[in-house]
Amino acid sequence: MTDNVRLHPGDPAPDFTLTTDTGDKLALTDLRGRRVVLYAYPAAMTPGCTTQACDFRDSLASLKAAGYEVVGISPDEPAALAKFRDRDALTFPLVSDPDRAVLTAYGAYGEKKLYGKTVTGVIRSTFVIDAEGRIVLAQYNVKATGHVAKLRRDLGLG
């Protein structure tokens, strides 16, 4: 069994520059000065990931009002992310990490339990990064349903 990296509050958030659902590049450093919610999900357009993405979409105005940018990350190619964005009217960037290097750096890729079996894949995770690029909150193995409401409570947003 491999030991997955786990990030903790105060750790520097691993930097990245990845291709988005629009084909543009997005670097974490582009978001310096703003707080970021980076959430890792296994696959675009699957039921759980759709539920989670739509929850973020529906909470985006209040998250932005509280000073948070939302970015979703998965191993999907940009074309699949664009389809996901268009199908579900997603209004925040989705970034593509096809080699899973960034997901691995965040501890969001590795061994996990799926229906009682150990498999290797994306670990549904959420990271809150402060304006200086440090981890404020790292949540692993989060549930797709109800996670955004829990995250809002954890951030004191009600």
Rank of each mutant, 00 (worst) to 15 (best):
L81W: 05
E111P: 09
L28A: 09
D97V: 01
L31N: 04
L114G: 06
R87M: 06
C54K: 08
T118M: 10
S74C: 02
L81Q: 14
E69T: 09
L157H: 06
T51W: 03
A65T: 05
A144N: 08
P12E: 15
T29R: 15
M45T: 11
P75G: 07
L60R: 11
T118R: 13
G121S: 09
D58C: 07
A89V: 06
A82G: 08
A61C: 00
A82W: 02
R153K: 13
A65D: 13
G158Y: 10
L7M: 12
R100N: 10
P42I: 01
R85S: 11
V142Y: 09
P42S: 08
G133L: 02
T145L: 06
V148I: 05
P42L: 01
R152P: 00
V70C: 03
R153E: 15
A144M: 01
L60I: 04
F56C: 07
D99G: 08
T17R: 15
D154E: 15
K150N: 10
T2N: 14
G10S: 11
V36P: 13
S96D: 12
C49K: 03
A13Q: 12
D30C: 04
L103K: 05
A89C: 05
K113P: 03
P75M: 09
T118L: 08
P14M: 10
D21E: 07
K112A: 05
A13R: 11
Y39E: 02
F84I: 02
T29Q: 15
K64H: 13
A101H: 14
L63K: 01
R34N: 11
D58P: 01
V36G: 09
G23S: 10
A101K: 13
S59A: 14
A66I: 00
G23F: 04
F127T: 07
L151F: 06
V102P: 12
S62D: 15
F92V: 03
A89M: 09
H147E: 13
V142T: 05
L90S: 01
A108T: 11
A101M: 07
V37W: 07
L28Y: 14
E111D: 15
Y39P: 01
P12K: 14
R34P: 02
F56A: 06
A82F: 02
G116Q: 08
D76K: 09
P78H: 12
K83L: 03
V128E: 14
R124N: 07
A53Q: 06
D130Q: 04
S96T: 04
R87H: 09
L7K: 15
D58F: 06
T120D: 12
A13M: 10
D130I: 04
A144V: 00
P75F: 08
P12H: 14
G33I: 04
D30A: 07
